[in-house]
């Protein structure tokens, strides 16, 4: 089961899939693109850039340990430095026993913004390469763990010049509070896909008993030969 297909199952509405939409799944290691139109998938693409690269950029840019960079990204991460006041500071732990430093939070925006722009620009290039730019009239849906980063949607809107929204799983019950998060889009989508396929299977099996099915199969063989 292709992951972008599963995510689409969970976060896109039928109207969006009918009219044409691009789903961008910002994962840890990869960014997946899926274009839906007329209720079917039209194009898929996997870009080997993702949240991992953002963390890496922070680690290098701030000279911080990798694990700390990940924490900083989740807690303070922002892709738009303009929105942050210049007085806001973050605490960056030093590496190898060095003292921690205070840095303005704007620096984070300056690090993350170009990387995020790069990811979306590469996705945009792929959309144009596949000649799908006129198909995605409903806009962009951004999902996956990195979609939670502050300012991602603004950058997506800026690059694609289309409305963007955050994709969270819907159409489910139960532990909705837990899974109502773009991180779980693929997991929930796989369950939804499974449910759909299972009901199809059940329908076919209950249709006829085994003997009739065997006879039918043999009839088909004869028909094929004739």
């Amino acid at each position: 089961m292709l992951e972008s297909l599963a995510s689409g199952e969970a976060v896109l509405s039928d109207e969006e899939k009918d009219l044409g939409i691009a789903l961008v799944d910002l994962g840890g290691g990869t960014t997946d693109l899926a274009i839906f139109s007329s209720k079917t998938i039209k194009h898929t693409f996997v870009l080997a850039l993702g949240g991992h690269n953002l963390t890496n950029d922070i680690a290098i840019g701030l000279r911080a340990p990798f694990a700390e960079a990940e924490k900083i990204k989740k807690k303070y991460g922002t892709c738009i430095s303009m929105n942050i006041s210049s007085e806001e500071t973050i605490d960056v732990p030093g590496m190898g026993g060095r003292k921690s430093r205070q840095l303005p939070r704007q620096v984070l925006g300056e690090i993350l913004e170009p990387r995020m722009e790069e990811i979306f620009a590469l996705i945009k290039r792929e959309i144009y390469r596949a000649e799908m730019e006129h198909v995605i009239v409903s806009g962009i849906v951004v999902t996956g763990g990195s979609a939670l980063l502050d300012g991602v949607l603004e950058i997506a809107e800026m690059i694609f010049n289309l409305p963007a929204r955050l994709g969270t799983p819907f159409g489910i019950k139960g532990l909705v509070d837990v899974v109502n998060n773009p991180m779980y889009a693929t997991g929930v989508g796989l369950v939804l896909f499974g449910a759909k396929n299972q009901s199809q299977k059940n329908f076919r099996i209950r249709d006829k008993n085994i003997f009739n099915r065997v006879v039918d199969r043999m009839k088909k063989w004869f028909n094929d030969v004739l």
């Binding site: 992951e3 599963a6 994962g27 840890g28 290691g29 990869t30 993702g50 949240g51 991992h52 763990g145 159409g171 489910i172 019950k173 139960g174 532990l175 909705v176 837990v178 899974v179 991180m183 779980y184 693929t186 997991g187 929930v188 989508g189 796989l190 369950v191 939804l192 896909f193 499974g194 449910a195 299972q198 009901s199």
Partner: peptide, 23 residues
């Protein structure tokens, strides 16, 4: 549903009851 990602692996258990899916 099992999503094997680069940063995290997540398993989601859903229960199907009368057309509805409970996580």
């Amino acid at each position: 549903g099992l999503d094997v990602g680069t940063t995290k692996i997540c398993a989601v258990v859903g229960e199907v009851s009368g057309g509805e899916i409970n996580i």
